[in-house]
Nucleic acid binder design. Structure first.
Lengths: 107, 107
DNA sequence: TAAGCAATTAACATATTAGTTAAATGATTA
DNA sequence: TAATCATTTAACTAATATGTTAATTGCTTA
């Protein structure tokens, strides 16, 4: 099931950090590897876990492979799950308010 | 870190199902165990993972131990993470709209 | 074509996780 | 107290995940 793979992918700090890096901009596998204290093959494996969960996409351009975040899949899964578990939606609504405020500020 | 334990706890289908059961009502360890095709000790261990992540609380009443969902911790962590990764908050806002609609309907 | 860089795959070691059954702990009640 | 039920802890096994280094694949360019 898709949700299984997504939660599985998120249960790793380095993978969550990769998502955070990619939330700012697309990066190559090598860019990402250089940001971790870990070998390139290890990072490559994390990327493939994220990609098969649908959380990132990759595109080869010449010699490099660029990775990008698929934020919709992430957000839809997390909020869908939170919504299922917590049918009374107050906390989500509060979060949503905070978001609007942050956006206004330009953050 | 708290987030580590929470995502770790969520990376297990039986544990997510336990949360879903507890979202409807509090249940004893035995009630929960009877809903799974798994031994009671195994379910007990899942419960302890959820509890040490702060996602559920337990309370002994006589012979039984009742478990309850801590939905705020779950929702705050998931939406906080989604917010961090996806600063443009459109999907969350959409989810929030759906939630209001469901609430109005009384679902 | 050959050399070189980027990235992934292969092969392997180690640590963790998830389940099992058996034993122990806590609380009730005959 | 003894028996019983609910739950957790202990001891163990099997499967999976994560990291390593070495080898391979893909692309560019001298």
């Amino acid at each position: 099931m898709a949700v299984d793979r997504i939660f599985d992918a998120l249960a790793s700090r380095p993978r969550r950090e990769i998502l955070a890096y990619l939330s700012a901009q697309e990066l190559t596998a090598g860019d990402l590897a250089s940001r971790f204290d870990m070998s390139a093959p290890a990072v490559s494996r994390h990327l493939s876990v994220l990609e098969s969960a649908g959380l990132v996409s990759s595109e080869r351009r010449g010699q490099y492979v660029y990775y990008q975040l698929n934020s919709h899949n992430l957000v839809n899964t997390l909020t869908g799950f939170a919504f299922e578990i917590c049918p009374n939606g107050r906390p989500l609504k509060r979060e949503s308010r905070k978001m609007r405020a942050a956006k206004k500020q330009g953050t």
